[in-house]
């Protein structure tokens, strides 16, 4: 299979890797001044893991291109990271971005793992446990922000809605990609967008508790 054949899979891989690369950077830059010591220390540890995931996925993408993946030096993202994540400038935006990306990426990775194509040798199985930790961390913090005081809950909802626009657009292209479906990389009718919206809506409906 040539790079041209695999172009949508390479695009998918680089989108995931770019977002993890950016989130790893933001987890350090913003996470270092998190609201609690525990959240800060965990954010720094998670940054290392996100950057590690992105390296593995970049290597895989380069292998798909026919290049020697292990010899390619990663200096910057390839430009496919969600713009909202690149612009993260505070804790609220960081948590919203981390949660939205991890929900979407988790769905895509699991869809590919469950797909029947055994030739693509993806690295996703190795990172599911750590990614789930990041998802739990960001989900609990989302709930805290939704139940916080003043303008924080509203600001958080706005941040989440904005990043979800890009997330949903990306998931639409993935679930309708004819190459990914025809090559059994993902199953037809995977309904990634619906699943993602269901998860996020559950957070917004259940996570926000009315202030007594």
């Amino acid at each position: 299979m040539t790079e041209q054949n695999y172009s949508s899979l390479i695009n998918l891989a680089e989108t995931i890797a770019d977002n993890k690369y950016i989130l790893g950077d933001r987890l350090v830059e913003i996470g270092v001044s998190g609201p609690t010591l525990e959240a800060t220390l965990s954010a720094i540890a998670m940054a290392q893991q996100e950057l590690g995931h992105s390296r593995l996925i970049y290597r895989w993408a380069n292998d798909l291109k026919g290049a020697n993946g292990s010899r390619v030096e990663i200096k910057d993202q390839t430009g496919k990271a969600f713009a909202r994540n690149v612009e993260i400038s505070n804790w609220i935006e960081l948590i919203a971005g981390l949660y939205a990306v991890n929900v979407a990426v988790d769905l895509v990775m699991r869809a590919i793992i469950e797909g029947r194509n055994t030739e693509i040798n993806h690295p996703f199985s190795k990172m599911l446990k750590e990614q789930n930790d990041h998802l739990v961390y960001s989900k609990v913090w989302c709930k805290q922000l939704l139940n916080d005081q003043g303008s924080i809950p509203t600001r958080f909802k706005i941040s989440l809605e904005k990043v979800m626009i890009e997330v949903v657009d990306w998931l639409k292209t993935v679930e309708s990609d004819s190459f990914l479906i025809s090559e059994n990389i993902i199953n037809q009718n995977e309904n990634l967008v619906a699943k993602c919206k269901e998860v996020v809506n559950e957070l917004l409906n259940v996570g926000a508790v009315s202030n007594a």
Binding site: E38, L41, S42, A45, M46, D133, V136, Y137, V140
Partner: peptide, 19 residues
């Protein structure tokens, strides 16, 4: 020792801080 809002977050903190 540390503070967390729930058991799930406590497990995450423990694994990532005390490594």
């Amino acid at each position: 020792s540390f503070k967390a809002t729930c058991d799930d977050l406590a497990k995450i903190y423990a694994e990532h801080i005390y490594d």
